[in-house]
């Protein structure tokens, strides 16, 4: 009765209540069923034994699977590789990203064209990037071998993807090719937010281009660096597609995610596969949190 007497205002508030819920139900349902529910069932698997398939009684085993993966030599080497992927990728992305942004920051003829071309590698599937780059690293007759042979740097073709560290660097290069556009855009947006007066003031003080870059641009880019570090790390830590296309599940380039794939879907060991995946997720979350804090400090 009260609702009726209060009239229009209340009716529209009630309408907002009902419509609000109706409108979010599809999103909540699909995210709940296909992200949150699998997250919970996946976590349950990571604290259960592998079951009869692995000659064990089914049941909860606490953190044993996690201990197993931490001590497993193959997983350990996958972790080392992942650290290398992240370090190489992120440092290349930051250095090249700043260089690209500084180059493209100011207006010049054809800038629109260069910006359009710049984002192409980001738009392509990473599987296709791998396919495009494969011939460059081909062990028998790739571009790298022909160029180096012709320059007499090497005397015999080198099997690039079979050697340890080199292979990781080549795969990272392909990964960086796809991610660099995004990082460059982050730095471009950062440069655009620096007011022009700062530069004219420092020019009046007699600062040359390099000093301006070192003491004006770089410090003011700190928030962008924090964002780029976060984005770059999160993308590189879960590297998978480029490795799969360029070198499959070979041990010398195996990342954590390739190891998760191999454990779970090749050897059907769901218990250890999920444990390793959740371990990686925990590390990812920790990095995200650290960078979020750094970003807040950089912007305040």
């Amino acid at each position: 009765m009260r609702l009726w007497r209060q009239g229009e205002g209340d009716r529209s508030a009630r309408e907002a209540q009902i419509l609000g819920w109706l409108f979010v139900v599809p999103a909540v349902a699909v995210v709940g069923a296909l992200i949150l529910y699998p997250l919970v069932t996946g976590f349950k698997q990571s604290i259960r034994s592998g079951g009869f398939l692995f000659g064990e009684k089914p049941g909860y085993v606490g953190l044993r699977n996690y201990r197993d993966v931490i001590h497993d030599p193959t997983s350990q080497s996958a972790m080392r590789h992942t650290v290398e992927y992240v370090l190489v990728a992120v440092s290349l992305e930051i250095l090249l990203g700043i260089a690209v942004a500084v180059t493209l920051h100011r207006v010049f003829r054809g800038r629109g064209f260069v910006l359009a071309v710049l984002i192409l590698p980001w738009a392509l599937p990473s599987v296709v990037s791998g396919v495009l780059w494969r011939r460059v690293f081909d062990p028998d007759n790739g571009m790298l071998n022909s160029v180096l042979l012709q320059l007499h740097v090497i005397s015999q073709p080198h099997v690039w993807l079979a050697s340890g560290r080199g292979a990781i660097i080549y795969i990272t290069l392909v990964h960086v090719w796809g991610v660099l556009p995004l990082i460059s855009l982050i730095f471009l947006a950062g440069l655009q937010s620096i007011p022009e007066e700062v530069y004219s003031a420092s020019a009046v003080d007699g600062a040359g281009p390099w000093r301006q870059f070192r003491y004006v641009t770089l410090p003011l880019l700190r928030p962008s660096v924090a964002i780029a570090l976060t984005v770059g790390t999160l993308l590189a830590i879960s590297i998978f597609d480029e490795i799969y296309v360029l070198n499959g599940t070979a041990l010398n380039t195996r990342s954590i995610l390739i190891q998760v794939y191999n454990t779970t879907f090749v050897t059907a060991d769901f218990a250890h596969g999920t444990a390793l995946a959740f371990l990686l997720a925990a590390v990812t979350a920790a990095f995200g949190a650290i960078y979020a804090l750094a970003l807040r400090r950089a912007t305040v």
């Binding site: 699998p38 990686l280 997720a281």
Partner: peptide, 19 residues
């Protein structure tokens, strides 16, 4: 909804496969 943005896809793929 925003919270799920921080969940890496790879931790759900195994559970998702079974669902």
């Amino acid at each position: 909804l925003i919270g799920t943005l921080v969940i890496p896809i790879f931790v759900i793929v195994i559970g998702l496969f079974q669902v």
